[in-house]
Amino acid sequence: MRSLISPRLLLREWEDKDADFVLDMYSRDEVVRFLGARPQVLHDHDEALGRLASWRERQDEKHAVWAVQDRRTGRLLGTVFLVRLLASGEPMQTAAETEVGWHLHPDAWGNGYATEAATAVLSYAARSGISPVFAVTYPENAASQAVCRRLGMTHVGQTDRYYNMTCELFTTKSGSVKSGS
């Protein structure tokens, strides 16, 4: 997996030594409340290592889950990813479409890091020939929807095609998908 650099950020591979940060971030209700059909906080170090392992399983030659790190201080700030969406169903299956997403530690909120990290990932996607790229959010997740708009993504509408839930769908190409199920 290649690292990406933006003006303030280093996007790098997650390492097992980062598990304490992953546990701290994903043990917070305010971070996980908009993640998946049944949001669940992490409870211990083993669960954090399991999360890191699950991210590695979703990676391939073009798709990755990066740690977001402040270039100046070295402090971890969150996660940004470019992965295949998971199609609704039991069990969920990998979809053909690619998703960009981000999760930041609350201490990093409000500084433009999500937009900056996702911009670097979308540039990487374009260089890698991945188009369109989608983003999905909970209908009530106004903060992530604002990031999508700052990224220049187009709101397509609601869909229940992914993650066994109804979500707002955004895309990097207008008119490329229909919003229904």
Rank of each mutant, 00 (worst) to 15 (best):
S88W: 04
T98G: 10
D20R: 15
G129D: 05
P7I: 00
G175E: 15
A143C: 03
A19V: 10
A53M: 04
R72H: 15
R12S: 09
A67M: 04
G101D: 12
A125E: 10
V121P: 08
E47D: 12
T94R: 13
Q69T: 14
G180A: 09
L76P: 00
G157R: 12
V31D: 08
L10H: 10
P139K: 04
Q40C: 01
L10D: 01
S88A: 10
E30D: 11
M1R: 13
T171E: 09
T119L: 01
I130S: 09
A120K: 13
L11D: 01
T137D: 03
R127I: 13
G180V: 08
M165L: 10
D18Q: 03
F134D: 03
P91V: 10
A126G: 02
G180N: 12
L169E: 08
G89C: 08
G110P: 01
D44C: 15
L151F: 04
N111W: 12
K173Y: 08
R28L: 13
E61K: 13
S123E: 15
L82F: 12
L82I: 15
L77F: 14
S181G: 01
T171H: 05
K178I: 11
L169F: 14
A135E: 02
G101N: 10
H63Q: 02
Y26K: 01
Q40A: 10
T119K: 09
V156G: 02
T79C: 15
M1Y: 07
L35K: 04
P91T: 14
G78P: 02
W102T: 09
Y124D: 14
L85T: 04
S174E: 15
I5N: 08
V68I: 13
R75P: 00
G129S: 11
L77R: 10
R161V: 00
C148I: 06
T172R: 04
T115K: 01
E61I: 08
A143N: 07
V83P: 00
G175F: 09
Y124E: 14
A146T: 09
T172V: 07
E168V: 10
S88D: 00
G180W: 08
A146Q: 13
T115D: 01
D60S: 06
M153G: 06
A117G: 04
A118P: 00
K178C: 10
